[in-house]
Design a protein around this nucleic acid. Structure first.
Length: 281
DNA sequence: ATGCGGACCTGTTAGC
DNA sequence: TGCTAACAGGTCCGCA
């Protein structure tokens, strides 16, 4: 379900209802996610105040700390959340009936609960202390695609000598975060690059264009509120509206919207890959 | 270091 | 209509 725009949309949706709020209770119905949820989250988080909601790649980072009357900084704890393939976070009224895959509720004293749902359980919810950016899952991540660090010459430099298909290359979170299967397909189409081409054999000029297209497609999707595939919904349950503007993803065998050639669908490292043999080389 | 394939888990859809 | 197999938005890990 979630690629970067969906995660960003989720973040924007939930943040206003969480910031500066005190957690009143945590209910864990299923702790076996990608990694088990530690019971400490349930015992330590209630009573703490949520201080920030951030995103790094497709990870959401919630910071929490106690409200110390003494003024002594007791340090922050962090909740690292990934939505995996099928996860979502929504805001629901306290005591809303929980469905089969509603694994966690974090309820605020306002009566609003942050509900984590994830049928496939590929996501995670990790409770820890210490600098979140040094966390093993975040430490080695590449730059944010919408930041200036993702510069026109960045991909060319990183790709030197690499033989993987360019599609796998831009989906590698150590290279750049947040480019999932849908947007990798779309950005390569927009840049006119064959997804099978070896990463190390693409010109600086084409990489500059690809970089621009990646930024464009992600920023556009964020503006649209995320892609709707199957059942993606934002924090309050509203659907995203980006699907209608996908040019290649999910359109294998159909005519290219630009040149009319039938789009080809292949697999690159187990992932569905759609491209136009006429427009992409 | 790089690249590949398997692993995690459930739900939906395509095909017989 | 029913059964089975393939596939789905992610990414970590172990092995060659």
């Amino acid at each position: 379900m979630p690629e970067l725009p969906e995660v960003e949309t989720t973040k924007r949706g939930i943040a206003p209802h969480l910031l500066h709020q005190t957690v009143s209770s945590v209910v864990i119905r299923q702790r076996q996610l990608r990694w088990p949820i530690t019971p400490e989250m349930m015992t330590e988080l209630p009573g703490q105040i949520l201080r920030s909601v951030d995103r790094r790649g497709k990870y959401l980072i919630l910071a929490a700390s106690k409200n110390e009357a003494s003024g002594i900084d007791t340090g922050k704890n962090y909740l690292l959340i990934h939505l995996g393939m099928s996860g979502s976070l929504r805001l629901v009224p306290v005591d809303s009936p929980a469905g089969k895959h509603d694994h966690v509720d974090i309820t605020m004293t306002t009566g609003i609960a942050l509900r984590y749902t994830d049928p496939r359980r590929f996501g995670c919810m990790l409770w820890f202390a210490g600098d979140p950016l040094l966390h093993p899952l975040l430490r080695a991540l590449g730059p944010e695609p919408l930041s200036d660090a993702f510069a026109p010459d960045y991909l060319r430099v990183q790709a030197a000598g690499r033989k993987v298909p360019v599609k796998s290359f831009i989906m590698d979170s150590k290279v750049v975060v947040g480019v999932g299967n849908i947007y990798a397909n779309e950005a390569l189409f927009m840049a006119g690059i064959d997804p099978r081409r070896a990463a190390g054999r693409i010109s600086a000029q084409r990489y500059a264009l690809l970089t621009e297209r990646i930024k464009e497609v992600l920023a556009g999707a964020i503006l649209m509120g995320g892609t709707t595939l199957r059942d993606f919904t934002g924090a309050t349950g509203q659907p995203g509206y980006f699907k209608q503007s996908l040019a290649v993803y999910g359109r294998g065998g159909h005519p290219c919207l630009r040149c009319g050639t039938n789009l080809r669908e292949i697999r690159i490292t187990q992932r569905s890959t759609v491209f136009c043999p006429g427009c992409q080389s």
